[in-house]
């Protein structure tokens, strides 16, 4: 392993106006793993990704990517925003959007090269959208739109991938397809940091977890993080959900990778 730590977040506080949305969050993430960020709605998960990407500037603290400032590392980090954050009626095809993954501040005034176009084709292929490459993006299902976003990130040929809820509005088959794609990326030494909302699948999907609720509640392997105490600290009053997960954990003991799907 050449680089042990992919992302370092140091005493990070981010505010909107005067309201802190992230408070003194501090962690270091391993590299070459699939890492999940979990936490209730409004707990600052999206804000965390945006701050890591430098889209928001923190009130205090800092972020390091492979021990460097984000602006020196943009070539090596890809960002997949929440799907709802863009207008899908925009007049563009699948190919057009994925091609944006090859845009750089120094090539905006040039035509795309042959290599760029080949990478775009390959990325579309990887997410299984080749048959839709010329389709207008508004005429895609939610799952297909999500795959367009992932293909755009793949086209960036980065080492770290930050994804904001890539499984929202995605059917089970697509979710599995994306998941095996992520496993493949991991084999190639890539790091994936993903916001995830479905607590029932977290221990299956992730090697490492960050549990957030404005503050950092817990970080570590799923076994370390998914304790009753941590979950009640993060999710507070949402007891039914909590009970369900706690039961799930008890019943299966860890590791619960082989569990049946009879949840």
């Amino acid at each position: 392993m050449k680089e042990q730590c992919s992302i370092e977040v140091h005493n990070l506080t981010t505010t909107y106006g005067n309201t802190p949305v992230l408070w003194d969050v501090d962690f270091e993430l391993p590299s070459g793993q699939i890492i999940g960020i979990i936490g209730p709605n409004g707990s600052g998960k999206t804000t965390l990704l945006k701050t890591i990407m430098g889209l928001l500037s923190p009130a205090s603290g800092y972020v390091k990517i492979f021990d460097k400032n984000i602006d020196q590392m943009r070539e090596r980090i890809a960002y997949v925003p929440q799907r709802e954050s863009v207008d899908w009626d925009f007049p563009a095809s699948v190919f057009d959007v994925v091609k944006m993954g090859r845009y750089r501040s120094n090539n905006l005034f040039r035509r795309s090269t042959k290599t760029d176009l080949a990478i775009v084709e390959e990325s579309i292929e990887k997410v299984g959208l080749s048959d839709f490459r010329n389709r207008q993006i508004s005429q895609l299902s939610g799952g297909q739109q999500q795959r367009v976003f992932i293909a755009r990130a793949l086209a960036q040929k980065a080492d770290i991938y930050l994804m904001d809820e890539p499984f929202v509005g995605v059917d089970a088959a697509t979710e599995n397809a994306i998941l095996s794609l992520l496993q493949e990326m991991k084999k190639d030494g890539k790091t994936v940091l993903m916001i995830h909302h479905d607590l029932q699948t977290v221990s299956d999907y992730f090697d490492y977890l960050v549990l957030l609720n404005t503050r950092l509640i817990a970080k570590g392997t799923p076994q370390e993080v998914l304790t009753e105490e941590n979950l009640s600290n993060a999710y507070g009053g949402q007891l039914t959900l909590l009970a369900k997960v706690a039961n799930l954990i008890k019943e299966n003991e860890f590791p619960i990778r082989e569990r049946d799907v009879d949840l």
């Binding site: 945006k50 990407m53 430098g54 889209l55 602006d71 943009r74 980090i77 890809a78 960002y79 925003p81 954050s85 863009v86 207008d87 925009f90 563009a92 057009d96 959007v97 944006m100 845009y103 750089r104 501040s105 905006l108 005034f109 755009r152």
Partner: peptide, 19 residues
């Protein structure tokens, strides 16, 4: 290219380091 990128997805453009 620049106009297209920022009108579709400004946050993504920023994430690429584009001003």
């Amino acid at each position: 290219k620049g106009f297209k990128l920022i009108s579709f997805n400004e946050d993504f453009a920023k994430s690429l380091g584009i001003n």
